[in-house]
Nucleic acid binder design. Sequence first.
DNA 1: GCCAACGTTGGC
DNA 2: GCCAACGTTGGC
Length: 166
Amino acid sequence: MKKSNTTNSKPNHWLMKTEPDVFSIDDLANSPNQTTGWIGVRNYQARNYMRDQMRLGDRVLVYHSNANPSCVVGSATVTRTAYPDHTAWDTTSPYYDPKSSPDNPRWQMVDIQLETKFPTPQTLQMLREHPKLAEMVLLRKGMRLSIQPVTAVEYKFIFSIASRIA
DNA sequence: GCCAACGTTGGC
DNA sequence: GCCAACGTTGGC
């Protein structure tokens, strides 16, 4: 059997940042089919994760950045793999990039569907308290990447504590 | 609003 | 390819 990521049925785990003033977990909940295209990623590393590694059914932690406080607020699943981000060639979009075009799209997006809005969002401060999460990418100094890999252990742990009713 | 830590751009 | 200047992110 050929080794290939595309035939591996085990989902990957991710964390995706969004500024709640721009698009919040409630906006996702209120979206048609609770699904949205993840427009506006303009960072190559984040794009490459989407383009090269995100698969249908991958699990996503949704994180509110630039918030009071910033926290993991919910979970979602990938329901469509990477496709061109049309906002890049929309001159009226805040995400417009003149170097992208329909013929030669530079940026990609995926679709995600809400799974859970957590009853107990986990703030950065709360996450830092757990030794289990010591190596988490989100908690590393200077880490700005808007799409990050999360280990299965980290994902399950955060899902578990955020699901508890406080 | 501050500013550290990144990422990108562009002259050379 | 180097790297200074500039722009952005995002916690605080």
